[in-house]
Amino acid sequence: MTRLKSALWFPLFDQLAEPAGVARLAAEAEEFGWDGVFVWDHTRWRAPVSAVADPWITLAAAAIATERVRIGPMVTPLARRRPVQVARETATLDRLSNGRLTLGVGLGSDRFGGEYSLFGEETDDRRRAAMLDESLTILSAAWSGVEVHHHGEHYTVDGVRFLPRPTHDRIPVWVAGFPGKLAPIRRAARHDGYFPVNLSHPDQLAESVALLGTGLEVVVAQPASTDLAPYVEAGATWWLTDFEPDDISVDAVRGMLRDGPR
């Protein structure tokens, strides 16, 4: 049986909105044997959260502070990011980390902080899904180093090469979605991993994995007290720590990481 890998996963809110502090936590996580350090990607959150850090700059700090752990945004809603910018950011961060970047992607949601409606971003799920797929097409082409020609419904790239390329042929992409939803499963099957969010029972995971196929990473986020054996039996390959965002603290993350991976 494949060993279950373990990653710290937390929002960059309030006490954790300090990049230098997160970089120190990432270095400690590496020291204590964790396999990854992943962070949420949000522009704001509902009260009582007030401070929110940028994930890309924070991950750059974490990349410099570590040598082994995988890092990445988990997940970034590509519909509110320009794919050209993400192509540059991901390649740069992947090279800075010597090939340790994993890109988590999804639709995102407006209901936790009005991240779409308050900034005039697209709120329709179907249109955001189309923007997500189009962005992923552009990213795959950009990472290849070839000249990109893309004329889609939402984005245009007219004969541009994106150099330097990532360290490896491509950056792993994990696709998030609600359990049982077919579109994220199909999207994940075209990429490298599947992250069913708000997973409440291992049977939900087993049903999704049966539709997913083989050879992909399967990611579950569960509290530390959870018996993970049924999730591993259902197909999980990664476990992510699950923190409550409204009262996240440095001490809570440090306490979790020092308990060690599963």
Rank of each mutant, 00 (worst) to 15 (best):
L103K: 03
V220P: 02
R190P: 04
R3V: 14
R165I: 01
V148G: 13
R44G: 11
P245D: 10
Q204N: 06
R161G: 06
H42S: 05
D35Q: 06
A229H: 09
A61L: 06
L101T: 05
F13H: 04
P261K: 05
D158F: 11
R187Q: 12
S135L: 09
Q222E: 13
D41M: 05
G213R: 06
G213N: 05
D54L: 00
F162W: 09
E31N: 15
A189V: 10
L101M: 10
G21K: 06
R262D: 14
P196C: 12
V253G: 01
F13L: 07
R126F: 13
T2C: 12
H150Q: 08
S144I: 02
L212Q: 03
L136C: 07
Q222F: 01
T90F: 00
P172M: 11
L16V: 00
D192T: 08
G104A: 02
K181A: 15
A130L: 04
A229P: 06
W143Q: 08
A130Q: 11
V173M: 11
E89K: 07
V157N: 10
P196N: 12
P184C: 11
T214V: 14
T137V: 11
V253H: 07
L228W: 03
V52T: 05
R258F: 12
L12V: 01
F243P: 02
K181H: 13
Y194P: 14
V250R: 15
D246L: 13
W40R: 09
W9H: 15
L96F: 08
G177D: 00
G193R: 01
W40F: 01
L103V: 00
H149A: 12
A20K: 11
E134N: 08
V253T: 04
L132E: 00
W239F: 12
R161P: 01
W9Q: 10
D246G: 15
G33V: 08
R111S: 15
I64T: 12
